[in-house]
Structure formats: structure tokens, C-alpha cells
Design a protein around this nucleic acid. Structure first.
Lengths: 344, 344
DNA sequence: ATGAAAGCGCTAACAA
DNA sequence: TTGTTAGCGCTTTCAT
């Protein structure tokens, strides 16, 4: 079963390649009989058009590039599943690249995907990305990009996010209601959209409940918790404070599990000594010790909507009347890790 | 910053495209001055060769396709990181596709990757794959494929696996030594290599310890635990037995967490009533309730070796003197979920 | 209704 | 040392 080309078909059927090409695309100008002949032969020989040749000609590829910080993260892998499910049905392939929270990798991946002629990009920024030139240039060239989760304020395009402010507000409020006052916030670098929004929600909740905001209780992890030591240092600083926190709001998957690990190692009792709530889509939250209170994001749906927006942008480049930002609500799933102090 | 081609450079410098092409590849037949001229101009204009054009010409792409059951699984995502780290350094790109444990998706992904001219394939079989034609055909055409983890006996090529027999044997033995006698085995479809090997290790350990093997204690999950109900049904059948097991050996990530979830729901005490050990690379094993005894696979290294073998195959197609199967040892990390009956 | 030829970007055999 | 040409697979304009 060698790969067969239009040329082969043309030769076999004593036709020109253009006729074969047209016949295969069911062109009106081709004789019905010829069409049938060609189609049947193509079918029989299991002809498949060469997508590389098509890409070279048309500068597009019916594929979508996805650039995310990392795959080994439930939030992102659920997103991917959402993306794939829709893309697949709309005839697009999905090519995934990890930035590993590195700006350089993000740029390199972006360039590669573009040179491979992806028709559009779905991006969640690395935690170390501050310069957005690489994306801006592409958008200027007309390449559609949709951002999700970690989105840049500075770029105007479709975005898919969650209401981080509210998610954070609710989580913090929940901690306060359960009797905590010294609430720490373990979070990502400040220049990520999700960081500022979550921080704002956290602050507002404190304020609304007359708890003074204390900078010392906020710890930023530059690598978003990817680097273990970062997590540990931040946590240790918190634990070593004269008045250590009695609760922690962790801003991501990594930060949450990292935080739990440090608490375990230090034999800190959860929730008695410190309550923990985290932004995480981890599947086993319920199986943890104790079961973890989590701010969950609708990752699958977010992925689906993000591709939908992207594909719309790809297929109707004109109608870019206005860009929209779709915002989803997080859901706070309360479990024992934040059990009320009073009941405990 | 428009995309610039060799043609543009040639025109600008009043040279032919072939001269430019050769200059850029630093060909010995080009005048040093011309070379310098071309290179500097290319550099200044930020010239990047079009990989699509190269692929079309050469039928290769400096990229490697990876087909795995799913990404949202620590074992596979760690593998991917191993693969990427090496591939990146050797100048290859990695394109990842999920089969979602579906034979059809596996075939579709394979075909797509091949049509996209990947230079080789790294594959871990879906749990529903019994027919291997799609891979055999490709290998006949000369496409290098390396299998890992879930490998086909029938195909001769490089493979990277773990010693599943031993891993399973040790885990089972550990359960026996901790005082268990009715050890159940929750596993994947029988036609997967990993299933038979793990089953064999389990049986041998029973045999060596004079515990009769009982079929009723072995449960196969056709979708490898991806379908939740499957897990639940299997577990429920075990729990409903007149003599329910006092230990469970789960054969994969999914099966392990699924098993734990069912036990939790049924308020079964671990390890008092039922001990649990699972093949899993889950990152939070230690944070579970109780901390989970795990058979861990060196996923990162396996990924690294798998690409190495593949790239060797790609770059030295001749020297395929003999195919090798690299086997790694699993490590049994003992935690409380299998604490000895006696001490408890 | 069909065919010839050009072009997408690049390289290599062949010429000069 | 440099240039010309053909070809990878496909589509499309322009003939016929």
C-alpha cells in the first residue's frame, strides 16, 4: 500500500492531474462519468491528499496550535480534552506544546507552530511571560489567537477565563466564616492576570470582613510552584512567622499540592492548625487527607468555548466586529480541609 | 516583519536561489564573501526556512509523533517530559496525540501523523487495540516505530518497558507478607502486554506463597478504568463476594484512584479492611488518605530512552542489526495503605 | 469538458 | 563559484 498521488491516478486513468484534482473536489465542470471513474479509482487505491502539499500551497493546515504551561496538570489536560472534542468534529487537528513556564520555550513553540502553518493559536501564558511581542506580531499578520485562563490584558482578542476575583473572594470568605483570621495567600507571579485577580478577590474579602490586609501573608512563587524549592521556601517563611497563618489559599494546582506536602512534612494538622483551600482541578481531591476544599474551574467547557471562538475567527476573519471575553464561574467544593474551627 | 523566503534574498542580493540556498547551508562550493553576504542579510531579515516546504521535498519533518492513551495521567505526562527533553536537544519536535483508549482514534491519529510526515512514532497501545495492521504497514514502509509500556508482542522493533512481572510479584508478595490472603487484582483488558505480565507476577507470588489462585478475584476493566462505571461495577462485585478481598492490587493509575474512590464511598477502611497497592505515578500518593503504597515506574527515563532509540532508528536506518527491549525496574514505595494487619 | 503550465519554498543534479 | 532547471503534491488560471 504505497502512498498514491494525484499524478498516479492521472497516469493510470489517462487524464491530466488537473482533471483528477477537479474530479476529486467534485467540480461542476467535470463530466459525471469521469468523476465517477476518478472517485472510484481513488477510493479503491485508498488515495489520501497530502496535507503537507496543501499546506505549502495554501499556507494553512486545518490544525490548531495549543500552547500551555504544562500538560501534567489536571486543569490543562481537561482543557485539552475539551479542545480536542470540538476541534475534531470541526475537522481540525490539535497540536499541543508545553512552555514549561518558560518564556523562551513559549516563544520557540510559537514560532515553530507558526512556521508549521497552524491556522490559529490557543494560548495560556507561561508564568514568566511579560513580553508579548511574539503574539502581537502574529496577530498583526492576521493569525487568529485566543487566550484562556492566563490572558494578557494588553492584547485585544477573544479570551476565555474564569471569574478569578469571585472564586478567590468566595474561597477567602469561606475561610473567614469558618473562623480563620490569619489567611495566607500562596500565589503565582504578580504579572499573571490570574494572580492579580485572585489577589484582588482575596483582599476584598478580607476588607469586607474587617480583617486588615497583611503583605507578609502573601507569597509569590515565580515559577508557579513548578520549582519545588520555591514552594517550600514560601511555606516555610509562612510557618516561621511569629503569627503563622491559620489558613492558606493556594492559587493553583501545583501550589496547592506543594503546600499540602510541606504541611504534611511539618506535621501541621489540617484543618485544626491550618485550613487549606486551593484553586485546583485535581481528580483526587476527595481522596486526600483530609479531603481538600477546592476552587474548581470548568476546564472542559472552557476548552470547548476557546476552540469555538478560535475556529470562528479562522473561518470568518472579516466578521471580527468585536472581541469577546467569556467568563465562567468557578465552583467552591467544600471538604474537610477547611472544616470550621468551631465544629472541630 | 513579513515572512521572507530564499527567493526574496536572492532577488535582493542579485543571486540565484540555489546560491542562496547553498550559502545558507554553508556549502563548500560557495565563495566566502557571498556566503557572508547572504548569511548576514538572512540574519538581518530574520530568515527562517519553511519547514513545510522542506517536508514536502524530503518527506521528513524533524518531528516525532507520540501516540498515548491519554495525557491526563501522570505516567504518560512524565514520559512526555522525558521525550521532549531529549528530542528538543536532538533537534526534533514532538507532536502528541491521545487515543483515549479507542482503537479508531489510535488509527486516525497514526494516519494523520504519517501524512504529516513525522519521522518516527512513539506508541503506547490503547487498551482496545487488538489489530496491529496500521503499525505493521508503516513499519513495512520503513517508518521507525518504538513502543513503550503497552507494547505488542507481535511486532519486532525497539521497545521500552518495565518489568511488570516483577513489579506485580513484589507488590503481591508485599501484601501477603503484610498478612493478606484474599488478594484481588483489578486490571486492564487481557490483551494488553502489561495486563498479562502483571497478572503473571501476581499469580506467581500467590503460588510461591501457597495461596490458591481464584479467578473471581481478578477483574478486567475494558477501558482501563477510563469509564468510571466500569471501575465501580468491578469493585462492587468484589465487595459483594461472600468472601470479599482483604487486599487489592490495582494495575494502573486510573484503576487505583477509581478503586480508592469506591472504597471511600463504601466506607471501607484502608488498610484495616482492605489494603490497597496500585501501579501509579500519581504525584500526591503521599497526600492521600491513607498514604498510598505504589508501584512506581521510571516514566521520565523510559521516555528518554524511548526517543533515543527512535532517533537512532531514524538517523541510522541501516544499522538495524537487532532490536532491543529495554526493561526498567519498578519501585515499590510502601506507605500506609498496605500497613501490616498485625501492627494495625 | 479537459489539459498545460505556473507557483507554494526548498534543494540538488546538471550546466556553465 | 554560480546559475538553470526540475521536482516534491496540489490547485488554479488560462488555454483549447
Amino acid at each position: 500500500m504505497e502512498t498514491i498521488t494525484i499524478k498516479d491516478i492521472a497516469r493510470a486513468l489517462n487524464l491530466s492531474t488537473s482533471t483528477v484534482s477537479r474530479a476529486l473536489r467534485n467540480s461542476y465542470e467535470i463530466n459525471a462519468e469521469t468523476k465517477k471513474l476518478v472517485m472510484e479509482y481513488a477510493e479503491r487505491m485508498n488515495y489520501r491528499p497530502n496535507p503537507i502539499a496543501l499546506s505549502l500551497r495554501d499556507s494553512k493546515s486545518k490544525s490548531i496550535g495549543v500552547i500551555i504551561p504544562e500538560i501534567a496538570n489536571n486543569f490543562f489536560s481537561q482543557m485539552i480534552n475539551g479542545i480536542e472534542s470540538i476541534a475534531y468534529n470541526m475537522g481540525y487537528h490539535v497540536v499541543i506544546f508545553q512552555s514549561h513556564e518558560s518564556y523562551e520555550r513559549e516563544v520557540a513553540n510559537t514560532n515553530y507552530l507558526v512556521s508549521r502553518k497552524v491556522d490559529g493559536l490557543l494560548v495560556s501564558l507561561s508564568s514568566l511571560t511579560t513580553d508579548l511581542h511574539h503574539f502581537e506580531e502574529l496577530m498583526d499578520k492576521g493569525l487568529p489567537i485566543v487566550f484562556f485562563d492566563r490572558v494578557p490584558k494588553e492584547i485585544e482578542t477573544h479570551k476565555v477565563v474564569v471569574d478569578n476575583f469571585l472564586g478567590s473572594y468566595e474561597a477567602t470568605e469561606h475561610l473567614i466564616k469558618s473562623g480563620r483570621r490569619r489567611i495566607a495567600h500562596l500565589t503565582s507571579p504578580i504579572y499573571l492576570s490570574i494572580t492579580t485577580e485572585r489577589l484582588a478577590g482575596y483582599k476584598k474579602a478580607l476588607e469586607d470582613n474587617d480583617i486588615p490586609f497583611d503583605d507578609a501573608y502573601v507569597k509569590y512563587c515565580h515559577h508557579g510552584g513548578k520549582v519545588v524549592s520555591e514552594n517550600e521556601i514560601a511555606m516555610q517563611e509562612l510557618l516561621d512567622m511569629p503569627e503563622p497563618p491559620d489558613a492558606i489559599l493556594a492559587a493553583s494546582d501545583r501550589l496547592t499540592t506543594g503546600c499540602l506536602a510541606v504541611l504534611l512534612k511539618n506535621k501541621v494538622k489540617i484543618p485544626e492548625e491550618i485550613a487549606v483551600v486551593g484553586f485546583t482541578n485535581i481528580g483526587v481531591a476527595e481522596l486526600l487527607n483530609p479531603p481538600l476544599t477546592a476552587v474548581v474551574q470548568p476546564a472542559l467547557e472552557m476548552g470547548q468555548q476557546a476552540v469555538e471562538l478560535l475556529i470562528r475567527l479562522i473561518e470568518h476573519p472579516k466578521k471580527t466586529s468585536a472581541f469577546e471575553t467569556r467568563s465562567f464561574k468557578t465552583s467552591l467544593v467544600v471538604r474537610e480541609s477547611t472544616a470550621s474551627k468551631i465544629t472541630v
